[in-house]
Amino acid sequence: MAAGLSLVPGGGIARGPDGSGDPGRAGHRSARVSLGEPWRLPGAGGGSPTLSEIFAASSRDGGWAGFLLGQIHARRPLLWVQDRMAILESGRVHPPGLLAAGLGVAELIHVEARDSKAALWAMEEGLRCAAIGAVIGEIWGDPIALDFTATRRLAVAAERHGVAAYLVRLSSTANLSGARLRWRVASAPSLPHPLNPRAPGQATWQAELFRARGSQPGTWQLAHEADGLHLVAEPVDRTLDETGFKRVGRK
């Protein structure tokens, strides 16, 4: 997964009683969110590439794309597969938008599949090609073809050939799956704007890891910088304390 992730201890624009911090006042200096120590998402280091499953908060929420692209590097081409319903309901890939994630248009191979069965076949064939850097597949709903066996085949192909696979589930349920990492991703409030506290700032996303092999589940709020993803909020511990409530923060 992402090679370089950093902690963000916090930051923003504070306004003093004399109006300092207001971009409309003279002498205002921009404030930026500082970056902390490097940090990796679970499964990011040591292990071989595998299958990650990402559930979008809604079919109209594209926050999952920023979260996903922040983990991909442009050393090799990216294979992006969409089934017909994913394109109709959520839109076709816009190649120039990849530039914001540091990926060039020339590194994109886009496949439009007629249905989920064809999309899964294209993903598996792409995973068997060592020249591919990563494979993304968008599938709409809960088609019959997308069962445990299909996801297991993708996971095995990704691990055997060393190509990361990301299965994006749109308007679907978290049924039985062979994916090693399973995420729920939603757009979150933006960071403070460095020049104007009233304006929207950098986009952030809330990512919940609800199932992982060899990693502890948790929830993070993330933002993307040129060097990768950065943590905005402290991770949430999904275990319960002695009172039966979830603990905020992780020991």
Rank of each mutant, 00 (worst) to 15 (best):
D61F: 13
A118P: 08
E124R: 12
A113M: 14
R114T: 11
E242C: 11
V248S: 14
V163Q: 02
A31W: 10
I109V: 15
L120M: 12
G43Q: 03
L209T: 02
E112S: 11
G91Y: 06
L78N: 02
P9M: 05
I136C: 13
G70A: 08
E242R: 14
K246F: 13
R182A: 01
E53W: 06
V168I: 15
I139Q: 00
P42W: 10
G36N: 03
V81P: 02
P143I: 02
S187R: 01
A164Y: 03
D61H: 10
G11C: 03
L108C: 12
P194I: 01
V93P: 13
R114E: 13
S215H: 11
I54C: 04
R213L: 13
F210Q: 07
D142E: 11
A207I: 03
E112L: 12
G218V: 10
L79N: 01
G36K: 08
L191T: 00
E234A: 12
L176I: 11
E53K: 08
E89H: 11
A31P: 08
A131R: 12
E125T: 14
L78P: 02
T173C: 15
A134D: 01
R76A: 04
K251R: 14
S30K: 04
R92T: 09
S59N: 06
A118D: 13
G4E: 15
L103W: 04
G47R: 11
A212H: 08
E208Q: 15
R29F: 08
E234R: 08
L79E: 02
L41P: 01
R25Q: 14
N175G: 12
G16S: 14
C129Y: 07
S58D: 10
A157K: 00
V185M: 04
T243K: 10
R160C: 11
T50G: 13
P217S: 03
T173R: 15
Q206H: 07
L5N: 06
L99H: 12
W220F: 06
W80C: 00
P235M: 05
E124V: 07
S52E: 13
G218N: 07
V33S: 05
G43K: 00
P189Q: 07
G21R: 00
Q206D: 13
V33A: 09
L191G: 00
L79T: 02
V168W: 02
S6G: 05
M1S: 13
E89Q: 15
G12K: 06
L108H: 09
H94Y: 15
V135P: 00
A26F: 09
S171M: 12
R128Q: 15
D61K: 07
R238H: 15
